[in-house]
Computed example of a mutant assay.
Amino acid sequence: MQYHLLGNSTLPVSEIAFGCMSLGKEDDANERLIAQAIAHGINFFDTADLYEHGQNETTLGKALLGKRQSVIIATKVGNQWKKDGSGWDWNPGKKYILSAVEESLKRLQTDYIDLYQLHGGTIDDPIDETIAAFETLKQQGKIRYYGISSIRPNVIRAYIERSNIVSVMMQYSLLDRRPEEACLAMLQRNNIGVLTRGSLASGLLVNKPAAPYLSYSQEAVAAAAAAVAKLSSVERERAQTALRYVLQHQAVTAAVVGIRTPAQLEDIMQTVQSPALQPEERQLLQQVLPPNKYEQHR
């Protein structure tokens, strides 16, 4: 397993990170799966207070009891559940963030969060107030670092200019190359780590039947999946090829992958030992489809 410092933080993050949103509801099964992931060298676990009304944080906290010093816990804030549980409202206000962190700490059974992330955001948010909340939590020792989870260039740019974020989590795959247009280079210049999600495009690049995805037609998605399959082999299967495309971008620190079963974990972990994409292979993948671009929030 390769480890990379997350931006200008002191957090050494495994290049394959565990996306906990995919965990089931059985605590015992989750504990076994997470222990298996740790045995493979995964040290970064990403969750959010939004997932399963907080139960995702709870099951992760149980699974990591006694292992706290050897792992990095990342969670998110900003989506406030309505009292009747029917949905959630966006709330990036300082008062809410300072109260929400207390509940996350209890569910995770920890005294501090390694990486606290704003779970979205718009350019119309009270950004300076949000930043002040994160800075206060750092001063209090309740979080070590903070970042944002966003695909909006204008929001990312604002936080680069006005805050001390160490990371941005964003969707990035062969079928979503929007970050390549400007965000990845901008983040790299500012030494801000990139955590990718959706790098298998919901399985469309691996084993799911072709279907429309973002601005791409079903036929275009099929062509991308075929290109991934063509470059795959016993040494580097399709999931590993798709992940290699993302991980080999210099701006990317880690790929956060949703893992539900031990078999999925074993498959994903083969990425660590799989052959790197050669420059001509990467170019071949890029030539299959014209890259998509952000149409809004630029």
Rank of each mutant, 00 (worst) to 15 (best):
S14T: 11
I16D: 08
S22Y: 03
L23R: 05
G24M: 14
G24Y: 15
G24F: 13
K25G: 10
N30G: 03
R32M: 11
A35N: 14
A35G: 11
A37G: 13
A37Q: 11
I38K: 05
H40N: 11
H40E: 13
I42N: 02
F45R: 00
D49A: 12
L50P: 02
L50R: 01
Y51H: 12
Y51C: 10
G54F: 04
G54H: 02
Q55N: 14
T58R: 08
G61S: 13
L65K: 12
R68Y: 01
T75V: 11
K76M: 10
W81P: 01
D84S: 05
S86N: 09
G87V: 06
N91C: 06
G93D: 10
G93I: 03
G93Y: 07
K94T: 05
K95I: 13
Y96V: 07
Y96W: 13
L98Q: 01
E103M: 07
S104D: 07
L105Y: 07
K106R: 15
L108D: 11
L115P: 00
L118W: 04
H119S: 09
G121A: 13
D124L: 13
D125H: 12
I127E: 14
D128M: 14
I131L: 07
A132C: 06
F134P: 04
K138I: 07
K138P: 01
G141F: 09
